[in-house]
Amino acid sequence: MSGVVNALIGVVMGLNLWALGTSRLPTLIGVVSLQGTLLGALPWLMEPGADWRLSAVALATVVVKGWVIPLLLRRAMRAAHVDREVEPFLGFVPSLLLGAGGTVAALVLAGAMPVLEEHHGSLLVPGSLASLFTGLVLLMGRSKAMAQVCGYLILENGIYLFGLLLIRSMPLLVEAGILLDVTVGVFILGIVVDRIQRAFDSLDTRKLTVLRE
């Protein structure tokens, strides 16, 4: 079973690079949506005889990360008439190179950390670190508010991957809280995005430069 899990995490890591390389916002949202769906499938694959708690978490992940959040983002994009270009601070090729370097570094770093017997050979830790790094690059390297939200979601996906290491021992409460917070966070982000659009007539964060020192 761990072969399938690792393959999926490999796909997630590939999607990270795609997210870094794409120049179009709808594609970026699509990548985030696909990544969310894959992550939702992981708990089922990792624990075949899953109990209802685990299934509920997995289902909620697919629905929220793979469906609700991308829907909200697409709607915000339409409502705010956002231009479809991503408009990077950091070019696509440097982003990709950074992402590839980050992925290698994640593999090396994860190899240096001690893991439990059952997690030997698993890509969970490197996958998590690589997604985290990708999210940070997108957060800092893209000027559109919407692209930054996508970066934040990829960062959250990385943390979720790490959380899967603890899925047996972590109480449901904590997991539910995480999902809930992500949803509410994006909801609020959506509202703020809308307001920024109205106030500045654009979602380009390069225009948010009044406050600086």
Binding site: A145, V192, R195, I196, F200, T205, L208, V210, L211
Partner: peptide, 11 residues
Amino acid sequence: PRAFEATWKYL
């Protein structure tokens, strides 16, 4: 607008 800019950075 300045308040929204601050909110965005805060978030």
